[in-house]
Design a protein around this nucleic acid. Sequence first.
DNA 1: GCGGCTAAAATTGTACACAATCCCGCCCGT
DNA 2: ACGGGCGGGATTGTGTACAATTTTAGCCGC
Lengths: 230, 230
Amino acid sequence: MMNDLSQTRPPSAEAIARALTQAVHEHRVLPGMKLSEDEVGEIFGVGRTVVRQALRALAHQGLLTIERNRGAFVSRPSVKEAREVFEARALLEPRTARAAAERTTAYDIALLERHIDLEHAALDADQTGVALNLSGQFHIEIARIADQATIADFIRQLVSRSSLVIALYWRRRNALCESHAHHALVKALRTRDGATAEDLMKGHLLDLLSQLDLRAQPDAKLSLRDALGR
Amino acid sequence: MMNDLSQTRPPSAEAIARALTQAVHEHRVLPGMKLSEDEVGEIFGVGRTVVRQALRALAHQGLLTIERNRGAFVSRPSVKEAREVFEARALLEPRTARAAAERTTAYDIALLERHIDLEHAALDADQTGVALNLSGQFHIEIARIADQATIADFIRQLVSRSSLVIALYWRRRNALCESHAHHALVKALRTRDGATAEDLMKGHLLDLLSQLDLRAQPDAKLSLRDALGR
DNA sequence: GCGGCTAAAATTGTACACAATCCCGCCCGT
DNA sequence: ACGGGCGGGATTGTGTACAATTTTAGCCGC
């Protein structure tokens, strides 16, 4: 699975950050893995300077944790951090969904429905990682529809960390639960029903939280590099 | 006003970021100002590498805006962004204040009251910038008391941007309004009155927002360097 | 005088070399 | 055999040189 970017021009730090982010969101790179500067640089064909920019950007976003003189590791949120992520989402997303409902256009609806279709397609193809990533982007899309760039940015970070939380604490693997919740949300948005959208989002987040197992302690020692398939 | 760090060891990127952040929060460095890498590096006695880390960190936080091949500038939030900042704060802070009320310890109360004293002292000394910074930190302190690290981080960013918004859109200069609101909040926290704390915080944020003039277009071309007093 | 073009100066972007730090295996002593 | 200390290897941290880009000043022509 060669990245087509490497053929043309040296990818920018943002491009590398995006690629790594997607890999983490799709659970191809798991919490605890180390991202060596040399390794990443060689993979993407850039010097360490650019890699460091990307890694530090992801660290500021909470996706990576940089330990001085040790390197960058995919974050492993503690149980407390996991709860905090969903508590923050509970504060931000329901109201945002309500605001989105009052601003949704027909084009937005089409986009969201197409998004859900992609989720289904990924699930049918047994690409749960891809489906999970799309599922997260659905929430970001709603924040975008609400026309709240600042909040959307926060939600993006929270969804990102949620991906880590799910990787660590998810209970069972059959993740086909979300589809209906998302579909119901789209319906509420289509009918401009802000109150329902807010309630649905709140319930949806509680649902997600309830499917986590926040007792166990995470542990893992993981290899690397081939998880990206390179 | 020499920074005592420069005498001992080269300050870290975090230290530089903190110093710059404080300077911006205290309105000694104003929105639109350019932060040249060489200049900052010379001031703090470090190479550009470390400066870049600090600048990029602040950019990720929203305090600076980095334009490629042009440099780092203190962000100048648009009117829309200004509204978004306070809308995000309205979502996060009231609930957080309620949570804080239910967890406040006697030590926290003492800390907050001492904090308010410092605000008063700064105001009496006509150091409105310092007072403003302390006023912002008060909000961060409440998030810390609520024991919500994730949300506290978001609030920290929002308070930071609020400082920029105030620099651009503040209506009148006599900023002695906050003291009472903060004092009332502490009282609610002391009595473990979460509902009142939530209401007070909500009102306080609306109050702040109402004192902004969000019609005018900001513009300024500002000198630099001596604003830091170096 | 004014607009556009050109070149030089200044500033940021990137890579690389070297220093600092950490990790791990080895060795030695008990 | 086991624990502590030591040293080699590997990885990250930082400064610096050079490349790319932008900006600005100067100049010419109109």
